[in-house]
Design a protein around this nucleic acid. Structure first.
Length: 236
DNA sequence: AAGCACGCCAACCGCACAGCC
DNA sequence: CGGCTGTGCGGTTGGCGTGCT
């Protein structure tokens, strides 16, 4: 038996929200709150919408603290920094940008920022995989030692519980780990690792940040006979 | 002026997880 | 303890607007 659908799709309206629907939803939530139950909310409010659709509409467009308009350079910088640290965890990135939603940030990255960086030669257009890792050692050696990369502990993205784990003031350094999928498939551990500290990010522009990260990346990979575009995320 | 291509973004979909019974 | 339900999240899609030919 499969999971029951969240609503009766045949009897709910889909597609763009009308101003009237927006007014009904906003008016209901202003008066009654969400009631902690989005599924029943549309029925109570008199909307022929799926509860999930109502939630999305409220969170992304109707709630009062939404920030409209273009992203600032500072926001660009924060998005880039966090993306390269933790990947596409848009809700976490958005939590560092007051008034912005995960959908906002995700769309902005996918449609503008990514292209901006690619066009500027800051990131290659193709490649395989990069992953954000975190090093539990509070005192990492200042220079990356590739021969001891296995001593770094890999924490899956899902295990990051603190939205600001990599934010300003964090005492934890971050690690970007790179793997060569072709060799991994042959059972050979060819993962390369190096660290960057939070301090390295502080006060840097996007250009500085990317010069730092990818400059280090390029230098290491060149020495190890890996091509640069092998290791950058395919999602970039 | 019409057709086409592309960019942008709102919205949907499906999955994972947490809480409740 | 296992199943069910609601919520949150990231990936993807579809439609509209705009610019180009």
């Amino acid at each position: 038996m499969g999971r029951a659908p969240c609503c009766d799709k045949a009897n709910v309206k889909r597609g763009p929200w009308s101003p009237e629907e927006d007014a009904i939803l906003k008016g209901y939530i202003d008066t009654h709150g969400t009631g902690g139950n989005w599924i029943s909310l549309p029925q109570k409010a008199g909307l022929r919408r799926c509860g999930k659709s109502c939630r999305l509409r409220w969170l992304n467009y109707l709630r009062p603290d939404i920030k409209l308009g273009g992203f600032t350079e500072e926001e660009d910088s924060i998005i880039c920094s966090l993306y390269f640290s933790i990947g596409s965890r848009w809700s976490v990135i958005a939590s560092n940008l007051p008034g912005r939603t995960d959908n906002d940030v995700k769309n902005y990255w996918n449609t503008r920022l990514k292209k901006k960086l690619v066009a500027g030669g800051r990131i290659p257009a193709i490649g395989t995989t990069t992953t954000a890792y975190i090093n539990p050692n509070p005192n990492p050696t200042p220079d990356p030692d590739l021969s001891t990369a296995s001593t770094w502990t890999h924490l899956p993205h899902q295990s990051f519980s603190e939205p600001n784990f990599h934010g300003p003031g964090s005492s934890l350094p971050s690690l970007i780990e790179v793997s060569d999928s072709s060799s991994s498939a042959a059972g050979v551990n060819t993962e390369l690792s190096w660290w960057t500290t939070e301090e390295s990010y502080s006060g840097l522009s996007i250009d500085d940040l990317l010069d730092l990260d990818f400059g280090i990346m390029y230098e290491i990979l060149s020495n190890r006979s890996f091509s640069f575009d092998q290791v950058i995320s395919s999602s970039i």
